[in-house]
Structures are given as structure tokens and as C-alpha cells.
Design a protein around this nucleic acid. Structure first.
Lengths: 157, 157
DNA sequence: TGCTTATATCGTAACGATTACTAATTATAA
DNA sequence: TTATAATTAGTAATCGTTACGATATAAGCA
């Protein structure tokens, strides 16, 4: 199914409307599916198709999309929240490689932790609904070419 | 070695001084080693032993401790940064279980990912210096007793 | 078609965590 | 002691985010 129609249905199912503003925001997310956009980035991009749209609407719409589980909010510790469309296929598998040198953020679509989740269930009585795994380190290619300086003291995510 | 003396040495080694204010803050961290305190929490606690201490000093000191790798800054997405003493033994193994129901945060001191890190080195040319793994889910005990309502839409960390 | 009510938007003010800045204080060194 | 550097306190400024009041749009109904 056409993703916009699909999302429109999800809105309707929860008695929300897919207004032109909301649709413009969703299209930006669809067009940048690979990225983890911040609110400000979405705001800048959506201005191209809908110049009049307000910042507060972006905040509200992203929160709504999050509530409907269409996007996911992620906090990487860089001071801004980032949002990501969650494809139906890999519902909750968020593995990231974050490079100390160039700051690049690679997403890995692979579930490496199923076995661990079973273990948590057994040993801790903890039923996992979501997980997130971030690796901080250096790409060998970056180390050789030395693109940029290292970032300051920061948590992994 | 006495932890305060140890930390004092690390300060000296980097041409910093362990002032009374800094020591008071470090003691609060030592006394609450199990918790992940926010700046505000440290501030409140340190007021007991050093009532005159200013908030900015807490910020500065925690940043300094972070720079010296004595504490680690963590962003859990609840709007505040949290800090944790990093014991010498488990330098960078941060696994958390975050309960949807009661909000409890359990830390797991165990390195489950050594094999994965080797794989990243081989397959991605990525050398891991740090990682973090958060599981969001429900303790079976909480599910049964139903302590509190579920939190709003939030990222794992 | 009009009237009513609910929903959504806009722009901006308020908020809260963090950072930056200035003056005052303390330690260090000559 | 005097000069210099490091540290602190207090507060103003910053910045991402949220809340608010007024306006606009859509839906329901006579």
C-alpha cells in the first residue's frame, strides 16, 4: 500500500486527521528515511513544500506520529531529539555505530540480541519490548585519514 | 587505595586540584554509587555537607570528572543528564533494564557483547571503544502487581 | 445554507536544563 | 608581600521544548 494512504488510515483509526501540514511533514520523513532528523531539520526541509508551516506544528506532529508508533523518538545526547520512521519489518532493532572521528552514525538493521532477550526473561524475569544498542568507536578508514577532531566527553547515546 | 586519595591523584596528574567543593561532590557520588544521579540531585545532596556550594560548580565539576573518566555522563531521555562513577573493573559495560511499569532502572554489570565487538571489527572495520545497551520492557513481578501506569512515548534512552 | 462545536494551526511567551560570563576568592610562585 | 593563575559564586544568556491564546479550518446538525 502507498505509505501516505497507510499512514492516513492509521490517523483515521485514532480519530486524527492527516492535514496538509501533517502530510507535508510525513513526506519529509519518507523522503529522508535513512536519516535521523531533528525537529529543526524537519522544519527546514518541510519549508520547501509548505513554507508557512510553524515550528510548534512540527513538534506536535512528531509527537503525534510517535504516539501512533509511526516514528520513533531517539535521544543521542547531542542536545536534540531525533526522529525515525519505524518500518513495519524491523519494529524494534536499533543498533548504531557512532564514529568518534567523523561523527558518522550508521544504523544496523539486524537483530543480534534475541538470545540475550530470552536470557533476560529467564534470569531476570524481564520481558523485553524494545531495545537499543549503540557502539561508540572509530572506523578504521577514519583513523587512517583523520577527518576531524575527536568529540568531547559524551555518553554513548 | 582510599578512593578519595586515588581521585585526588588523578586530579593532580592533570594539574587540577581537589578543592573542598570538588571533594564534597565526589563524596556524594561515592555515597550513592548505585544510583545515576542528575545534576540537581547531586546539588541537593551536596548541600548537606557543603551548604554554600553553587549549582554551576556542580556542573563544572561533573564535567571535569567526566573529562578525567572518573564519572560517566549518561542521557536517558528524561530531560536531564545523569552521572555515574565508573569503577576500574568494568570500564565500559553499560547494560540497563528499564521497566515500563514502575520506571525502575537496573544496571547489569556483565559484558555480553565482546563477540559482537569482534564481529564489528571484522565486518564493518569499526573499532569499538565504548558501548551501551538498554532494554525496555516489563518485569513480570510488576506486570502482576501493576504498580503504576505506563509512561508516554519515549525512546529507550 | 448557517450555526455550533471540536480540532488544528500559528506565533510567541514561558519553561527548564545547561552554559557563559563577571566579579570575588583562594591558592601558588616568585 | 605581590603578582599570577585557578576556582568559585551568582546570575544572565542560550537553546531546545512546551504551553498558551487567538485564529482558522473542518465536521455535525438543524
Amino acid at each position: 500500500m502507498n505509505p501516505i494512504a497507510n499512514i492516513s488510515q492509521q490517523f483515521a483509526a485514532h480519530h486524527y486527521k492527516l492535514t496538509p501540514q501533517r502530510e507535508a511533514i510525513v513526506r519529509v520523513l519518507l523522503d529522508n528515511e535513512k536519516d535521523h532528523l531533528s525537529v529543526e531539520e524537519v522544519y527546514m526541509l518541510v519549508k520547501n513544500s509548505y513554507p508557512h508551516l510553524g515550528l510548534a506544528t512540527v513538534y506536535r506532529t512528531l509527537e503525534l506520529l510517535c504516539e501512533l508508533h509511526i516514528v520513533e523518538k531517539m535521544i543521542f545526547g547531542d542536545g536534540v531529539a531525533r526522529y525515525d520512521l519505524r518500518g513495519d519489518d524491523h519494529a524494534h532493532m536499533h543498533h548504531h555505530l557512532i564514529c568518534n572521528v567523523c561523527g558518522r552514525l550508521e544504523e544496523i538493521k539486524d537483530d543480534w540480541l534475541l538470545e540475550l532477550e530470552l536470557r533476560l526473561e529467564r534470569e531476570y524475569g524481564f520481558n523485553v519490548t524494545d531495545h537499543r544498542l549503540d557502539f561508540k568507536g572509530t572506523y578504521n578508514s577514519c583513523k587512517r585519514s583523520g577527518c576531524k577532531g575527536e568529540k568531547s566527553c559524551q555518553a554513548v547515546s
